[in-house]
């Protein structure tokens, strides 16, 4: 019995060792090289800790004249816990590479990196920012979707028409850090609980303090802080590669 177990353990260890190795993207045979790498889509998403982002990250390699380069190798990397599928690939005929991203286990801001090489082999890098919400911010995100988003988000979807155009005073989307970062936590709690008049603002911002609990409102504040762009200083940790 024992020897069998030991053998199994050894085999598992060996396999673990191997699989770790295969996680490293194998070098790709690029057939072309560009001079710049740009983000096509998938940056600044609001995701959840440890989870796949809704949209994959798409980057494009361009040459000096700005046209897309096919066949250039792109390597993705990020702080520990972040995984890419695929972690590396050659750009397709439109010069793009698409990779699905799973964020790390901790809530916070993630800095992802996409690399390619120019003709001389020099490294060209691109940083892509993503946000991972934790438990409290997830509660905030859900409450936002239920109670706030239709006034605070100018975007409409077929199931959710934005009400922003119907308001005479325009609220700010919660991602607008330039405005919201200047407000203290206490001010945010005050305007959410007691409505616009609490801060001498429009009553078109209704009071939620008799509908939502204190912890709900704290969750909304923590969500607003988490998604602010530019980031709110005290808004959590930034994860970048060492």
């Amino acid at each position: 019995m024992k020897p069998v177990l030991i053998a199994v353990c050894a085999a598992t260890l060996l396999m673990a060792g191997c699989s770790r190795k295969s996680n490293q993207p194998a070098p790709l045979q690029s057939t072309a090289a560009g001079t710049a790498i740009v983000e096509s889509s998938g940056g600044k998403q609001i995701g959840y800790a440890g989870m796949l982002l809704d949209q994959p990250v798409v980057v494009q390699v361009n040459d000096a004249s700005g046209s897309a380069v096919a066949g250039a190798a792109v390597y993705f990397s990020g702080p520990s816990g972040v995984s890419f599928t695929p972690p590396a690939a050659l750009t397709d005929s439109s010069g793009q590479v698409t990779s699905a991203v799973q964020l790390g286990e901790q809530a916070g801001r993630y800095k992802l990196i996409a690399n390619t090489h120019d003709a001389s082999g020099k490294n060209i890098g691109l940083t892509i920012d993503e946000i991972a919400l934790g438990y409290q911010q997830t509660v905030g995100a859900q409450l936002n979707a239920q109670y706030c988003v239709r006034c605070h988000d100018p975007e409409s979807t077929p199931l959710r028409v934005s009400n922003m155009d119907n308001l005479s005073v325009k609220p700010h989307p919660f991602t607008e850090g330039d405005t919201l970062n200047k407000m203290s936590d206490a001010d945010l709690v005050a305007i959410i609980s007691h409505g616009g008049p609490a801060l001498n603002k429009s009553p078109q911002m209704p009071p939620w303090g008799y509908t939502l609990s204190k912890s709900d409102i704290a969750a909304l504040v923590s969500y607003i802080r988490a998604v602010a762009d530019p980031p709110y200083e005290a808004g959590g940790l930034v994860y970048a590669q060492k």
Binding site: R150, V161, N163, N166, L167, S202, P203, Q204, P206
Partner: peptide, 20 residues
Amino acid sequence: SKFACQSCHIADYKNDKGYI
């Protein structure tokens, strides 16, 4: 004024637009 109900409701089709 105080409750700004027109943000979400229409009381008068000519002036109000809120449609939550």
